[in-house]
């Protein structure tokens, strides 16, 4: 067997110690620069994906799974839905929405507070009413409340 250190690793260690080498920039060929620039541009262009994906622009109100109304999230307003056991009040403000009041006994959907991310859901089960936010990216653009 060969007792030597693998030469890849040995070379690496020798070079890490700073053995006399060509300067770094001479190691890049013209195409490398071009490719690096293109890749950097693509990476920079992908950043909006990280932040813009989850913005909600409308609230979807459903009763028994059927669409009742869609409210745009750009004007403040209130909307009343008559459900199985009473009236649920939805409040919309620019960029967010919440269940303001609900006749349900435990008030889970009211206590959830303001929803602002796309696909966030508040479910008022006793009254059979749901409030869901939607963004531009369609139904699967972001985590929803259940999937989070």
């Amino acid at each position: 067997m060969n007792p030597q250190i693998p030469d890849g690793l040995r070379e690496l260690l020798a070079l890490a110690a700073g053995a006399g080498q060509a300067p770094w920039r001479t190691l890049l060929r013209p195409g490398d620069w071009l490719l690096l620039l293109c890749c950097a541009a693509l990476v920079a262009a992908s950043y909006p994906l990280l932040w813009r994906g989850g913005v909600a622009d409308r609230a979807i109100v459903k009763r028994d799974g059927r669409l009742v109304t869609e409210l745009a999230l750009n004007v403040a307003r209130k909307y009343e839905v008559t459900g199985a056991i009473g009236t649920t009040v939805i409040e919309v403000q620019p960029g967010r929405a919440r269940v303001l009041s609900d006749p349900g006994p435990r008030q889970y959907c009211v206590q959830q507070g303001w929803l602002s991310r796309a696909n966030a859901v508040a479910i008022c089960a006793p009254n059979h009413v749901t409030l869901q936010l939607a963004g531009r990216g369609g139904a699967h653009a972001d985590y929803d409340t259940i999937n989070y």
């Binding site: 070079l15 053995a19 080498q21 060509a22 890049l28 490398d32 690096l36 990476v43």
Partner: peptide, 21 residues
């Protein structure tokens, strides 16, 4: 991009080095 560039530079330097093979 970052680590790809760095690894590539290290590999290029290893390849450009006088062979210690």
């Amino acid at each position: 991009l970052l680590f790809g560039s760095i690894n590539g530079l290290v590999a290029a330097r290893l390849l450009a080095a006088p062979s210690t093979e």
